[in-house]
Design a protein around this nucleic acid. Sequence first.
DNA 1: ATGAATGTTTACCACTTGGTAAGTGAATCG
DNA 2: CGATTCACTTACCAAGTGGTAAACATTCAT
Lengths: 216, 216
Amino acid sequence: MAATVTAPAKPDRLPGSRAERTRDTENRILAAALDSFGTAGYDATSLDALAAGLGLSKQAILYHWPSKAALLDAVIDRACLDLVVEFDGVLRDAGEGWERIEAIVRSVFRVTIRRPELLGFVREVSRLGGDAAARISADLEPFVARARGFLQREMDAGRFRRCDPGLLFVSAYSAVLGAATEVEVLRAVGFEPTARSTVVRRRELLSFLRAAIVEP
Amino acid sequence: MAATVTAPAKPDRLPGSRAERTRDTENRILAAALDSFGTAGYDATSLDALAAGLGLSKQAILYHWPSKAALLDAVIDRACLDLVVEFDGVLRDAGEGWERIEAIVRSVFRVTIRRPELLGFVREVSRLGGDAAARISADLEPFVARARGFLQREMDAGRFRRCDPGLLFVSAYSAVLGAATEVEVLRAVGFEPTARSTVVRRRELLSFLRAAIVEP
DNA sequence: ATGAATGTTTACCACTTGGTAAGTGAATCG
DNA sequence: CGATTCACTTACCAAGTGGTAAACATTCAT
């Protein structure tokens, strides 16, 4: 099971200082790795294929990170940063109570369309287990803690059904990620994952979540 | 990322006719492959490791199936058979309406405890995509169709909230599988996946689903 | 200008991978 | 009993893996 990595061709001469170009190279490697890890999978991604897709040699990658595992760690941090930035931005302009959940769900669907590799990567890492999974947990822990706190406060205010906030989080997380990324299951129930069907899926998921969460 | 495969040692002399012993060998290979594919992953499982764990040589496996991909297909069929048998058995003795969903959820949690590799394998195959994912969809299609029919009838009878049965199935499927298998996420919200916490998780998931599905 | 640091390449290596070819001993069958 | 089929092993291979060593070119600091 091998992955072919494609990326925009590298411009022969890149402007900017050495430090800038180095940073740019690292960013391009991280982006390509995130893409391939998130779609093809970590095991199915070889450093050679990754480098070839970027017009580099494998050793260029191993210069910036000492091993494939170290690269994975860096990609994890990058992916988590992207996610937290995305969600924080959304939440800053979101309203109160249920509206905040609605905003997050919309944001997740937007991410699966614009950057499908990102949530696939989260899945992949938690599947890999071990250090990688521990790292992603740690990276996202502050966000998860805030989410739990939010759920708890809404319950205390009597707006959300009272239950364990942690487990509610897991249920909602799974349902959202599933509706957004379980392509095969969706196909099995007759939903080709087109952009148009996404709107329907999002609407149905929101009404599902609302019934499950909001105190009637 | 390699997987070490362990299995009960092969008895030096096995009784029974040749056909029986052959069938037994194939069953043992399928079981070991299901286990390793479901926990370590397909890419991370080498035929050598698989065979060594069974006290065989890799070529013994390739005698029964012409390639690793063909073995995967066979494992898919086996896993789906196991699942459908399990669920059909449960549903035969289950009651009506909501009780049937409750019975399935209990069954899923039982499976994750007794055969954790099984649902992990379903996840893994749908992650792999391609022919394998198409095959598992096809294998489970009859079951999924029955589930959708059930949901539709319950909605028509006014017992379940009216919505798209296919998407309701995806939401419920994701939530159940998540609560049962998302070990890392559970850990992130402070739930070590012990047997005792399973009871709590199951109870919370059921009340989550009930609120989402049942017409109040 | 020059020497050092930096980013990258070429060459290479040990090891693992899925798969082929050919051989072997035992069970089965005529 | 002898021939044959069956289940499996040993031997092997080409392709790919992550990673090391060292050479090389460019940029930077002095």
